[in-house]
Amino acid sequence: MDGLTPTEQREFQSRMERKQMKEFMGMFSNLVGHCFDSCIDDFTTKSLVQRETGCVTRCVKKFMAGSERIGQRFQEQQAQMMNQPPPGQ
């Protein structure tokens, strides 16, 4: 991002922030959708029962643990790709 004027840099940064917020919101709504789908199957009550609340809590914890681990592998792979010429060139 060299060669940008200060105005362009501000614009760029503010777009990146909006993008990150959007990604966070997307992650949040995916997490809600996934844990709801996995944990909620009883519609005889209108409030969460204890079993469901526990399942949702574990679902979020596990999702975050998995997400972190996958994120580490993803970063390692990006780093590796940087240090390696693309195949066939």
Partner: peptide, 12 residues
Amino acid sequence: KCVPKEYREGEL
């Protein structure tokens, strides 16, 4: 592929 959806525990 790797994590069953039962969520009996919170850790991986």
